[in-house]
Design a protein around this nucleic acid. Structure first.
Length: 340
DNA sequence: GACACGTGGAT
DNA sequence: TATCCAAGTGT
């Protein structure tokens, strides 16, 4: 691992911030101003989600719920509708819990330190540091996937970034480098760098503004950084989706309030061991495939009369369009529609 | 400290 | 097609 001198650190900060001020994505809506509410909403949406995906969601969310008070007092259904399709839905629920906490418990007074911000539900070590540095100028590194990748290459840090224990290694390495005057810009510049020149695949380090600080590039070992152990591939699961129609309505089932797609409405889903179990009763020729991070669902539509359970109800199109439905359910509805 | 937790894009 | 990736957190 490389150790930088004080002079190198100063040169790096200047190079990075000069580039950021000239080439950074200053037009991103959460960079228009640094109100903590705007930054909080953006940071939660951006967790494990790309900027281009977030943009339209962010605009709608801020337009409908422009203040932390609006979010705190909104019906949860409205918040989930605004989040529909964005995934990781506990983020939306925790975001509203955080807003309620700030409005009701803290009387609208924001926590300003990264330690205090981390008390908010859904706000962990990365997000708290991001908000603290961007909105409150705290000199603290926001260690996200970009920071891992960028600094693993710049400093040749070989700690496995898939391992939780590595976080403090990166934190300690980056802390003395964070710009003491513009910590928020510094952190955002690292993220812009990580999503432009210093990408995970096919980095363009030879044109990077910080190429002269890149030890891995200098030593021609950039492909070895960051070190990251592989994840498991998704487990295959087969289901039938029960299609039960009554008076133009379809039967839906509410999922349990914990676990995958908690509390969301889908067609009743019954696990099957193989397609042989339903021998030709299915409506679709090929299964509907939906892949989660850790699950691969293969779903067959089957028309079936059922006694409906307490967690089930018949919904008209008008009913289900006002609900926030998970993407897999939208796929099932479309597949059913396409059969007609 | 693993694993659960969504979705869409890139290669 | 398969695999990995993208501004992580909660349990």
């Amino acid at each position: 691992m490389e150790i930088w001198s004080e002079q190198t650190i100063k040169d790096f900060r200047r190079t990075l911030l000069d580039w950021y001020n000239q080439e950074g994505r200053a037009n991103l809506p959460w960079r228009v101003n640094h109100e903590p509410y705007r930054v909080l909403v953006s940071e939660i949406m951006l967790q494990q989600t790309q900027v281009d995906t977030v943009l339209p969601y962010y605009e709608r969310f801020m337009s409908d719920l422009p203040t932390v008070q609006d979010l705190a007092y909104a019906p949860e259904a409205q918040v989930l509708k605004l989040w529909e399709g964005l995934g990781y839905y506990s983020r939306a629920r925790n975001l509203q819990k955080a807003a309620k906490f700030i409005v009701e418990e803290l009387h609208g007074h924001w926590p300003e330190s990264s330690d205090d911000l981390q008390e908010l539900p859904g706000v962990g070590p990365y997000t708290s540091a991001a908000i603290a540095s961007i909105s409150f100028d705290e000199v603290v590194p926001a260690v996200d996937g970009n920071a891992y990748r960028v600094f693993s290459r710049l400093l040749k840090i070989d700690a496995d970034i898939a391992n939780t224990k590595s976080r403090h290694i990166f934190y300690d390495a980056i802390l003395p480098i964070v710009d003491p005057v513009h910590p928020g810009d510094f952190n955002q510049a690292i993220m812009d760098l990580g999503s432009s020149y210093m990408t995970a695949k096919n980095p363009d380090s030879s044109h990077s503004p910080v190429r002269s600080f890149n030890a891995a590039f200098r030593d021609n070992v950039e492909a070895n950084f960051p070190v990251k152990t592989k994840k498991q591939k998704p487990i295959k699961q087969q289901y039938i989706a029960i299609i039960s129609e009554k008076n133009g309505q379809l039967l839906f089932e509410q999922r349990p309030d914990t676990g995958l797609l908690a509390g969301f409405w889908t067609f009743p889903l019954m696990p099957i061991n193989s397609i042989d179990d339903i021998e030709g009763q299915q409506l679709n020729i090929k299964p509907i495939i939906h892949v989660f991070t850790h699950r691969r669902w293969e779903i067959w539509l089957v028309k079936q009369k059922v006694d409906h359970m307490p967690n089930q109800k018949y919904l008209s199109p008008n009913d289900w369009q006002t609900l926030s439905l998970p993407t897999v359910q939208h796929k099932l509805l479309k597949a059913l529609e396409d059969l007609k």
